[in-house]
Nucleic acid binder design. Structure first.
Lengths: 339, 339
DNA sequence: TTGTAAGCGTTATCAC
DNA sequence: GTGATAACGCTTACAA
């Protein structure tokens, strides 16, 4: 009765290996651990038997019994932004090297975030990592309420929310440095190109720049807002704004909230408006995506120390469940031809 | 003794809910299924109790007991290629909508592929999806040997391997169409820009173009090879090749194996060599990544019907375990200014 | 429609 | 260093 159930491939269990090797199941288990206190002889016997039978430990069962899944959920959205690819590469590489498996969830829209979190909960992930736009305080609140995971980490975005670990670049320091750079280069009529203004967490860069400018010049810079971090849309918005500008009223620099916006703005300035960069209008970005170094853009931008941030993330995951503080990282201003 | 073990959050089980609702555990289970034959009254009782206690079914346990994990592994590499981001977005969106969870594995190098597969095995995924370069026949062989998953799907690349399901664009048809286009536009001195030549599966586009050219002109086109699909590297290789060319020996069109190479080539031609596109040299790509439509490139390319392919992938996953045939899809030639 | 009992393949605990 | 036994939380029969 119990056999003949699955015909496709036999499910070799630790018991089978134990029997074949003439040891107990628990000994088999130990053979597959790092900190095993097991005799050389037993280990060998087990490994040979396991190899022969094609045994691989079942992580579902292990996780169920131990209440550690070694799995983290990665919630991500905004796939139009090339920076996401860079971040994913960096995170997946580091997590994998440290032995963490990753449950990838494409959070389709803000409404979907709750479902995504629920999903992760049901797999009993050890931690949730958020690299998205749509996770505002309200969503975080729900997440923490239904908390079935040990840690909630917000990557590459600052968050003041308690019970949340934010691993992020120091936006204030970074944008101050950029503002100073723009200032010292002699630009005086900046137009700030901002992304979605829905969520307070995204306003930090803009506010920092604005406050710098107010302090030094006593005026508020011009502002346009793009409703998603989509380069094409950014291009349209910028075109719309500048098209009817008298030549002498044009801004002399576009300070963009990130590279995605900056690249779109750059294309618009050069190809749609027929102006040159940086002679007519300069441009700055943020993130230093690979394309920023491209001859089309040569974007002056700010590089986030992603590798360090990812490394720290792994450390946070591995630490025992103490209270963790988030951490702010300092990156580098990358000066290129665009400003 | 058994309590006080986990202090952070209580683990509410179906038993707890059953007790609170005054029904059996099995009834609780049914309440959380779609095809539940359960009375309205029981359902309500269960749901209220579940809500109050904060119960969420444990998918590890479910998977262990049912031997279906509803989890697929996505093995991916080559993060320098922006097309990967597009594919991931499309796949994750479709899989998620159909209720599949995704285990993301960044396959660091060819050697790592085996580990990645083992990893997936241990989580007992229902299927493995490969979107990578490094999965040649040898790796596939190992994968199939240690097969603990029902399906091995190769996405966006053709494979002749038995026991493997390949969901891919029809490279031969597509490249024939591109070759005809290039031909009819009057180009006569093509240089084919190919990616890594290590694995036979990647040669199809090149071979198709070469065979077209041989048939129609009786000569073999020129060829350069780039060892990874990295735009910057492609730019270097192309520059190297064309720098010492006498003007009259220059190719009149660069036929690139994909957009990543084409964009790198385009940058090199315009910025490093100072030539114009398409007047001095034309360029074609393959994939139609979002950036291909960018004013910097306006790349003539071939668009893969990713949405259809992803939809079919989901269908394949959901079908019972019959023998599946892979399928070739037909896309569209996108004509833009670059050729 | 609902309940009962026997798995699923590990890990944890406690003896030896 | 090694082995028995009880969890872990669900699904799958089968019986009521």
């Amino acid at each position: 009765m119990p056999d003949g159930k699955k015909l496709e491939f036999t499910n070799v269990t630790a018991d089978d290996v134990a029997e074949a090797a003439g040891v107990s199941r628990w000994t088999v288990n130990r053979a597959f651990r790092k900190e095993a206190s097991i005799s050389r002889k037993s280990l060998e016997k087990v490994m040979i038997a396991a190899e022969r039978l094609g045994y691989v430990p079942d992580l579902r069962a292990a996780s169920l019994a131990s209440d550690r899944s070694n799995l983290v959920a990665l919630l991500i959205d905004d796939f139009a932004n090339p920076h996401k690819l860079v971040m994913m590469e960096c995170l997946t590489r580091n997590l994998r090297r440290a032995g963490w498996d990753i449950l990838l969830v494409n959070t389709l829209d803000r409404n979907d975030a709750g479902h995504a979190l629920l999903n992760a909960s049901q797999r009993r992930v050890d931690a949730v990592i958020l690299i998205g736009l749509q996770f505002d305080d309200e969503v975080l609140e729900t997440a923490l309420h239904a908390r079935r995971f040990r840690k909630l980490i917000i990557f590459a975005r600052s968050s003041e929310h308690a019970n949340t670990i934010s691993i992020s670049v120091d936006d204030v320091g970074a944008m101050s440095e950029l503002a100073r750079y723009v200032h010292q280069r002699g630009y005086r009529r900046p137009l700030f190109v901002a992304g979605p203004q829905n969520y307070s967490a995204h306003l930090l860069r803009k506010e920092t720049f604005f406050s710098y400018w107010a302090t030094h010049f006593g005026v508020e810079p011009e502002l346009v807002t793009v409703s998603t971090y989509d380069p094409a849309l950014a291009g349209k918005v910028v075109t719309e704004r500048l098209r009817n500008c008298a030549r002498e009223d044009l801004p002399d620099v576009l300070v963009c909230e990130n590279d995605a916006l900056a690249m779109g703005a750059s294309d618009a300035v050069r190809y749609t408006l027929g102006l040159s960069i940086p002679e007519d209008i300069a441009i700055t970005g943020f993130d230093d995506v690979p394309q920023a170094d491209n001859p089309n853009y040569r974007l002056t931008t700010y590089r986030q120390p992603l590798a360090d941030m990812a490394e720290y993330l792994v450390k946070v995951l591995e630490d025992s469940d103490d209270e963790h503080l988030g951490r702010l990282f300092t990156g580098n201003l990358i000066s290129r031809a665009s400003a």
